[in-house]
């Protein structure tokens, strides 16, 4: 692959790859590392790149593999403990903890608490607009599995958001 091809076809994927890595890791720095690792891997394997039918899906798969590796790594677990990432053990319910934040952030918190499989499939479908077939190719999950994960994620987000809003409404009523 010539440098020009790399600049034209791979570099523009950086934001999409970053969002995808972030949907799995929930950490900016680690997600940036993953994008960098993906880019370097693509450059190293440029002979393969020329033969790949869907280069974008290939890059997404590489990103996913790097992100999942990081997720399983000791480093990430340590980071999670140090920063209290998504933890609910400080006596507060998730709703109490996040009620002061704006709704978009609240949804993000709900998404962060979804299982990894649901998070990544939901992100690919509802944020990036991939087909079930593409998601299946990128993740290696079967199409029915992908559909179920996305269905559950949507239901969960909507249900928790509704519950949270009801909770806020009741609180404001009792205050007045």
């Amino acid at each position: 692959m010539m440098l020009e091809t790399f600049k034209k076809e791979v570099l523009p994927l950086k934001n999409k790859l970053f969002r995808f890595a972030y949907s799995i890791l929930g950490d900016h720095d680690l997600s940036m590392d993953v994008v960098q690792e993906t880019m370097m891997k693509v450059w190293e394997k440029q002979q393969d790149f020329m033969e790949i039918r869907n280069p974008e899906a290939w890059c997404m798969t590489l990103t996913r593999n790097f992100a999942v590796d990081k997720l399983r790594s000791k480093y990430y677990k340590t980071l999670e403990l140090e920063e209290g990432h998504d933890r609910e053990s400080d006596g507060q319910s998730p709703y109490q903890k996040i009620e002061s934040e704006n709704t978009i952030e609240l949804i993000q918190k709900i998404v962060d608490r979804l299982p990894q499989k649901q998070r990544e499939t939901f992100h690919m479908r509802d944020v990036e607009g991939y087909s079930y077939q593409e998601i299946s190719e990128i993740t290696g999950y079967s199409i029915p599995d992908v559909k179920v994960c996305i269905f559950r994620a949507r239901k969960e987000i909507r249900a928790k958001l509704t519950k949270l809003k009801t909770h806020e409404l009741e609180k404001s009523r009792s205050a007045s």
């Binding site: 950086k14 934001n15 970053f18 969002r19 972030y22 900016h28 940036m32 978009i104 992100h123 990036e128």
Partner: peptide, 8 residues
């Protein structure tokens, strides 16, 4: 909003 997130 998520779709508009870019690499920092």
């Amino acid at each position: 909003d998520k779709k508009e997130v870019t690499l920092p």
